[in-house]
Design a protein around this nucleic acid. Structure first.
Lengths: 252, 252
DNA sequence: CGGCACGTTGAAGTGACTCAATTCGCGTGG
DNA sequence: CCACGCGAATTGAGTCACTTCAACGTGCCG
């Protein structure tokens, strides 16, 4: 698979797309072949750069190849609310194919590599391969399930639980797509940004993160999340990963 | 259209479905004809009854005919977090077609009438009519956009802003589907339930609602939301309805 | 009439926020 | 090599918004 630093080819990007869809859906050889006809454009994005902005009407959909992207709302008072974090294989703005206007922005948290697929090409793929269409659709449904979890996480829980929950979700997702190594995974967020994900001030994030570190649950260091005690972290997070829908039962 | 008290027929339910999809997508005569082949089952649900529970694997998808349904998470400590409120025409568990397990529950807030469509029937419809498939897909994408807004509403905002924002969203959606009359719409939530939507205690909800009432922004009375000053309510809510995607531009 | 759910109110407590100061890590230029 | 600068992390103190808990009012239905 593609490493940071090398320059991935469109073919490698399409491989990653096939793998991503394959995580939740079963694709036939024919479907795969149809997908491989896509010709994405591959780009490198600098740290903290917007890829698409609230209000845009993009004509491409993006896939993360390496690094981390994030979606966010900009509120009227200028504050930022991150909505989701995206790692290799993720399709953070797939919905833009069918919703004209972007209701949020998409940016790179660190340096990232992305593939851009023309809406037109994807639409013609969907027409040719209904199974692939359903795979994409299912992908967006899991995306939505994660948002639902985001509501619960940020509404009902203490500072420590919110942050622990975020850690659990990120680590689990990283392991699934294979960017974790051992008990750690990439986590290029500053404490300020963590606060903008879970709806807390930086001071509170700091103290809660310290608490998790002192309790030997997890810690962030040098842009990586280190899980020290998964059991205890999950307890602190009240983490129940059903919503990630990693089961394939009944997948088409 | 169907009124509370009468018993709607399957044909009327299907009419409502066509209308709902037509709000965001353009359907041909052929598509409509295909949709009308569906044979939903129509039921009346009592107040505060669960229709589907977290963990279930339903084989039908539900549409609201009248009344209000809500989706919610049950957290480990037994608390409830409402995720979305659903009115006539809404499809609150459409995702269950492609995600096996329910990651949340669905209940009726007041007495409600619903139509149940067999997954099998819907799947065969999707196969016959790709345009309808996209209409359904787009519907689930707007659903997701509303969840995103839910994250921002419940994370970043004051008590008054959260509640005002909820009011704005509900009223806007009620107007679109035609269940509002003048400046009021159904709103069968107790203050406890409002708190479980926006992540606040009942005491805070009470005081914030009073504040909105005293400022002549909006009030809830007898299960209805009355908007007293839309402009001011929107200001208090920081409401920007882009995310409801009411524009049809580029719809297939 | 009596019960019950819901709304309202007050008082005390607390978790999170704000603001400001200090420290740490690290790359950069002298 | 060291001084410097800068962004990020850390810490403390004071404040505030929201929570908790308990009491009381109110309307409705059996």
């Amino acid at each position: 698979m593609t490493k940071h630093g090398t320059h991935p080819t469109p073919a490698q990007a399409v491989d990653l797309l096939v793998r991503t869809l394959g995580l939740h859906s079963t694709l036939s050889i024919g479907d795969e072949r149809a997908i491989r006809k896509l010709h994405p454009r591959v780009d490198t994005i600098a740290r903290a750069t917007d890829i698409i902005s609230q209000g845009d009407r993009p004509d491409v959909a993006v896939m993360v190849i390496s690094g981390m992207l994030a979606r966010y709302h900009t509120t009227q008072d200028g504050n930022r609310q991150y909505l989701s974090l995206h790692i290799a294989g993720d399709l953070p703005d797939l919905q833009s194919i069918f919703l004209g206007i972007m209701d949020h922005s998409l940016c790179a948290l660190g340096k990232a590599q992305i593939a851009s697929f023309r809406h037109r090409e994807i639409l013609s793929l969907l027409k040719r391969s209904p199974t692939t269409a359903i795979a994409f659709w299912r992908y967006t449904l899991i995306d939505a399930a994660i948002f639902r979890q985001g509501i619960t996480r940020n509404s009902n829980r203490s500072a420590i639980a919110r942050i622990a929950n975020l850690f659990c979700e990120q680590f689990t997702r990283a392991r699934v797509v294979g960017v974790a190594s051992g008990w750690s995974c990439p986590f290029p967020l500053s404490q300020t940004q963590i606060g903008q994900v879970v709806g807390l001030s930086i001071a509170t994030v700091n103290r809660a993160a310290q608490s998790l570190r002192n309790d030997k649950c997890a810690q962030v260091r040098a842009g990586r999340l280190h899980v020290l005690n998964w059991r205890r972290l999950c307890e602190a997070a009240a983490f129940e990963p059903v919503y990630l829908h990693e089961d394939l039962a009944g997948a088409t």
